[in-house]
Simulated scan of single mutants.
Amino acid sequence: MSRKDEIIERLKENGCRITKQRKILIDIILENDCASCKEIFYKASQEDDRIGVATVYRMINALERIGAISRKNMYRIESGESCAGGCDIVLEDDTVFSIPKEKLDQIVRDGVRRCGYLSNGKEISRIIYRDGQT
């Protein structure tokens, strides 16, 4: 079952009707790194001009109720995957930026080298990311 199908199923279980507009909103949230409801609304209104701001806010609330999103990563649907696609960095002011896995690997390699963890000419053969919440 895809992540979208799983979310739709959980919404149905919680009494939500699954409309075309709600499916559009789910797709936008899954496929984009939106920083606000306004940004989600803007993208949604380009696909269907009948989607209103209130619809976006209600959908965000419904996704939060079923645990698909949280205030910590408000506009990203949690995938449950580890660092397979990279990571999101959250700054103190809640600014979020994404780092793709390839770039993340390079950052780790450079950091390990600069911090002096490599000795005797050794090189990193692989990096294993652990799944963990901060």
Rank of each mutant, 00 (worst) to 15 (best):
R76Y: 10
I77G: 01
E78H: 11
E78P: 01
G80R: 10
G80Y: 10
E81Q: 14
E81R: 15
S82K: 15
S82E: 13
S82C: 14
C83S: 15
A84T: 14
A84Y: 13
A84F: 12
A84W: 11
G85D: 15
G85E: 15
G85H: 15
G85S: 15
G86P: 07
G86Y: 05
C87Q: 03
C87V: 14
D88Q: 13
I89N: 02
V90K: 08
V90Q: 08
V90T: 14
L91I: 04
E92Q: 07
E92T: 11
E92H: 13
D93T: 06
D93H: 09
D94Q: 13
D94F: 12
T95M: 06
T95D: 05
V96L: 00
V96S: 00
V96A: 00
V96N: 00
F97Q: 05
F97E: 07
F97L: 08
F97A: 03
F97W: 01
S98W: 02
S98R: 12
S98N: 07
I99C: 06
I99F: 06
I99P: 00
I99W: 02
I99N: 05
I99Y: 03
P100A: 09
K101G: 04
K101A: 13
E102L: 09
K103Q: 13
K103I: 11
L104S: 03
L104D: 06
L104P: 01
L104Q: 01
D105N: 11
D105I: 03
D105E: 13
D105G: 01
D105P: 01
Q106M: 11
I107L: 10
I107P: 00
I107H: 03
V108I: 15
V108A: 04
V108D: 02
R109P: 00
R109K: 13
D110E: 06
D110R: 09
D110C: 06
G111R: 03
G111W: 03
G111L: 03
V112K: 05
R113D: 01
R113A: 04
R114Q: 11
R114L: 11
R114F: 06
C115R: 13
C115I: 02
Y117A: 05
L118F: 08
S119A: 10
S119M: 10
S119V: 12
N120W: 10
N120K: 14
G121F: 08
G121M: 04
G121Q: 05
K122L: 08
K122Q: 11
E123V: 12
E123R: 04
I124A: 01
I124R: 00
S125Y: 10
S125K: 14
I127D: 11
I127G: 08
I127A: 08
I128A: 14
Y129K: 05
